[in-house]
Amino acid sequence: EVDTLELTRQVKEKLAKNGICQRIFGEKVLGLSQGSVSDMLSRPKPWSKLTQKGREPFIRMQLWLSDQL
């Protein structure tokens, strides 16, 4: 189980620290539009309420944070 709230907090922190905009992060890392990324980072759904497809971007965020992506 992933703590989506904590994960998105860490992602936002790393984006800010490295000067990466959400649009680029969305396109290059998540394969999503800036609007989708913005929504996901500001209002993450609980892991238990996400479908497999809904969980994929959060898994990619985890990999990106651990420099595996």
Rank of each mutant, 00 (worst) to 15 (best):
M61T: 02
D39W: 03
T8Q: 03
K12S: 02
A16M: 12
G31N: 09
I59N: 09
V29Y: 08
E13I: 08
E27P: 09
G19P: 13
R23I: 06
G35H: 12
G54A: 15
D67M: 05
S33R: 13
L5D: 08
K17W: 04
Q34W: 15
E13H: 07
D3E: 04
V11E: 06
P57W: 09
Q34A: 15
K49Q: 14
K49H: 13
Q52T: 14
R43T: 07
V11K: 10
F25R: 01
R60S: 02
V37G: 06
C21P: 14
E13W: 03
W64A: 00
Q62A: 09
L63V: 09
S38Q: 14
L69D: 06
L7F: 08
K14Q: 13
I20H: 02
D3M: 07
G35E: 15
K12F: 01
G31D: 08
V29Q: 02
I59Q: 14
L32G: 05
L30C: 05
M40S: 06
G26P: 05
Q52K: 15
Q52E: 13
R60K: 15
E56H: 02
R23L: 06
L7E: 14
A16L: 09
S36F: 10
Q68D: 09
L32R: 07
V11M: 07
L30V: 04
G54W: 10
V37S: 05
S42I: 08
L69C: 11
S33M: 15
F58G: 00
Q22P: 11
C21E: 12
L65T: 00
R9L: 07
L30R: 07
Q10Y: 03
I20D: 02
V29D: 02
A16V: 10
T51C: 03
R60Q: 09
S42A: 13
L32P: 04
A16N: 06
T51N: 10
D67A: 06
S33C: 12
G31Q: 06
V2R: 12
V11A: 05
R9I: 07
L41F: 10
P57F: 12
K14Y: 12
S48N: 11
R60Y: 01
W47S: 00
Q22M: 11
L69F: 10
D3N: 13
E13Q: 05
S42W: 02
K53L: 09
R9Y: 04
T51H: 05
Q34R: 15
S36N: 12
A16I: 03
V2H: 06
M40H: 04
P57R: 10
Q10G: 15
P57I: 14
I20A: 01
Q10M: 15
Q10H: 05
L15A: 14
W64S: 00
T4G: 04
L69E: 11
N18S: 13
S33G: 12
E6Q: 04
V2Q: 10
K53W: 04
I59S: 09
S48Q: 10
Q34F: 13
Q22L: 13
L50K: 00
K45D: 09
G54V: 12
G31S: 08
W64R: 00
S36M: 12
K14R: 11
T51E: 02
L15F: 07
F25N: 00
L30I: 04
K49Y: 04
K45T: 08
